[in-house]
Design a protein around this nucleic acid. Structure first.
Lengths: 264, 264
DNA sequence: ATTAGATATTGTTTCATTTACATTATGTCG
DNA sequence: CGACATAATGTAAATGAAACAATATCTAAT
């Protein structure tokens, strides 16, 4: 089911660059370290990412970026990512996973981006190494605006507005990462669904994440094989056709099955 | 075949800590950023990691650590990892892959470790965020000692000596990561083998990486299915039993097949 | 020359998983 | 009650994974 590409490099490719590095460039410096969160959600037919509005001096267009922040002295990377997400959205219970560090010096090559960040942070910025996190939540979940009170939008990952730094690359990497994540931890998809959901809804989530159609009957069989997806007695109401049955996610069962599976 | 656990967290678990953070601790600071390389190799029956000796003042025991370095201003993370590996071992052609950032403030909680690093780097160290890389090479490959001229040892990953910081945790994470990597990029295992190898050798590599026995006949079938593993006319010599056939890895064929596979 | 010893090589069956594919069921609405 | 909209469901074929043992080829010892 998964068909992914890992990123790897051969030292040889970079060897020339290393040799060309001047000794005097080999000085220790103090980069900033930040975390950025790619919060993914699914609307009816697209994978979307949550972006926060940023104010750009002298521009009345809207500008957006990933929620992110420099890390604080007392927090580790995971905590920083949780904080960022909480400050931006008010959300607390969000599945969150570190997936890659981005640290190219070229990240700060765009002067506008750097200027904006220096204004926002009141600091001289030369270079930032950022650790990217992937997070999932139900699309359109009511956000109780965190302390940042930024304006939020959901943007389809395939139709991103202009983003600063390498945020676009980060979102793309996240789009690949989520498939790997779902492969090993399928339970996370239920973060995208309400407590009661139909087979159709669950199938759509998989279709959107894997970006390909899934056969209805085969999917139904597979779903029936998931012991942690349990039937309820309720059905859809207010639809002008046969009502679909509601199912729910049994987290306890899932954790039992899954911890067993993982430990074998 | 793969049976792995991804690391993820729920923000809720950390929320209390966030709330307890004092405002005055929320100050920006300047952590150092380093890369550490976990270079894995296989001897006859164990997965081993390359460690470099480090001098600890006032101790005549031998101390080891992962090859690593603070990053330089002009290099990105990948380049830094290549440089570290090259300086430590002289190797150039090594498959290398970033796999996780480690950034807990607790990394520098051990005073001895910090003191050693401050002596070695001539800098005041408060906190280091490190980006860990996984690399593969043939065990015992002749290392033309890089500029560091450190003394190197191969240590079985299950029998590590004491290591500074969280290097032990990093090695353990690398041990899991390599299986994921091999799952999607099986070609990397040939970095562990000489140009001509027997079916037995190839099978042993997989057994060691996955840490479980593999059926001889099933493996042979699977190997025959790998078009990029091609028979040669040569056989083992100097053995007192039926000589095994030598095979070789056809990298060109592999790349063709694999890029096709990945793009579908 | 024959045999014992060592490891290499190879095929079949079973089982589980994946894929492809179309009809019947149940509700609303006019 | 007929049109229509979507829900629910089973079967057969193909593919992939796992279990399992006998024969082949070489060396060395007699």
């Amino acid at each position: 089911m998964s068909c992914v590409v890992f990123n790897f490099i051969f030292a040889e490719n970079l060897y020339c660059n290393i040799m060309e590095t001047q000794k005097n460039e080999r000085e220790i410096f103090y980069p900033h370290v930040s975390v950025d969160c790619v919060l993914l959600g699914t609307n009816e037919d697209k994978l979307c990412v949550l972006l926060v509005e940023r104010q750009v001096a002298g521009s009345n267009e809207k500008h957006y970026k990933l929620p992110g922040s420099l890390i604080y002295e007392s927090e580790d990377l995971d905590m920083a990512a949780c904080r960022v997400l909480n400050e931006a959205t008010g959300l607390k219970q969000v599945a969150l996973k570190q997936f890659r560090a981005f640290g190219s010096p070229a990240r700060t090559k765009n002067k506008e981006d750097v200027q904006w960040l220096e204004n926002a942070s009141k600091m001289k910025i030369t270079r930032i190494v950022t650790v990217a996190y992937l997070a999932l939540c139900k699309f359109g979940k009511k956000m109780t605006m965190g302390e940042m009170s930024d304006t939020l939008i959901w943007a389809p990952v395939n139709e991103l507005p202009h983003l600063p730094f390498d945020h676009k690359e980060i979102v793309e990497a996240a789009g690949e990462e989520i498939r790997r994540w779902v492969d090993v931890e399928p339970g996370i998809v239920f973060d995208y669904l309400p407590p009661k959901f139909t087979a159709y809804q669950l199938r759509r989530i998989f279709e959107i994440i894997y970006n390909k159609p899934i056969d209805v009957r085969n999917f139904h069989k597979k779903m029936m094989g998931m012991e942690y997806v349990v039937q309820t007695d309720e059905v859809e109401t207010g639809v002008n056709h046969r009502a679909a049955r509601y199912y729910r996610f049994d987290k306890v069962k899932y954790n039992k099955l899954h911890s067993k599976f993982n430990k074998v």
